[in-house]
Design a protein around this nucleic acid. Structure first.
Lengths: 143, 143
DNA sequence: AACAACCTCGCCCGAAAGGGTGATTTCGAT
DNA sequence: ATCGAAATCACCCTTTCGGGCGAGGTTGTT
């Protein structure tokens, strides 16, 4: 992955590492720490740990996810249904990606298979057909 | 106007004029006509008349058009409602333009004001909101 | 183990949609 | 007569979508 969430993670880790180093530096000036010794490397090693934690959190969030029910006779898979439901609420692909905690490319891939399964060419057609097939409720309500 | 229908008209008129000239030429060779005289200019002057007829037909078709009913309390104008209804059926802007016999730009302009009136940013949102407001029926049915 | 289905993601490209400006015409109300 | 809303259209530019490719990992079934 080389998209938003990746770079977001990089930036976050970078900022946190910088903060940690600043704090260490301050502690040094305040004579709380004598030099860049054990504590420094300990704090710096915290960055990779944080990164690991973030990735693990992402993985966890992806594993046990509250999944909204889908019709049993649906040609769409669970995930595809979730994507289509978000799309039907008027969200953009990016918004759906953020909502479902996946990348933009993943949403687009899901949409491709949705279009294939429903035999349509556009998202609006997919919505209309899904509604026609009883896969979507009449009103998903927007703000 | 400098789009599809314009150039279509130009092409049609051009082809018809060419045909007329060919017929005249043939008549000449067949000794039915002696030279490029009165008949020639008469036929050639038919082209502008045909053009005028086409434009008039277009104007007529635009004037008395069967308009589908719209909710009385709608914030949308008659035409805007028609556009939105077509969009809700899953049609592209170009398809809507063809359906309503207007240009692609006109459809896009209508959509802009629709988005403004419904306070949305995308066509899917407009559909959802209109459905929520009771402006659109649940099922517009697609092929 | 092998297979299919599903979920995830990246990259590239072309088509469609969105956003803004400006303009003309028509028509009804003031 | 003028004023505004509606409808029509063009041109420009940016963003979003759609389509196709490949490619991993997981899960469940045979």
């Amino acid at each position: 992955m080389q998209d938003r969430s990746f770079w977001l993670t990089v930036v976050v880790v970078g900022v946190v590492a910088a903060l940690l180093m600043s704090v260490t530096k301050w502690a040094q000036y305040s004579y709380l720490l004598r030099d860049w010794s054990v504590e420094f490397y300990l704090l710096i090693s915290g960055a990779p740990l944080l990164l690991a934690g973030l990735l693990f959190g992402r993985w966890l969030g992806r594993s046990r996810r509250e999944r909204q029910p889908k019709p049993a006779n649906s040609p769409l898979s669970q995930r595809e249904f979730e994507v289509l439901a978000e799309v039907a609420r008027g969200h953009s692909n990016q918004e759906v990606a953020d909502q479902l905690h996946v990348s933009l490319n993943t949403v687009k891939t899901h949409l491709q298979s949705i279009y294939g399964k429903l035999d349509v060419k556009r998202r609006t057609q997919a919505i209309e057909k899904a509604r026609h097939l009883g896969l979507l409720k009449q009103d998903h309500s927007i703000g």
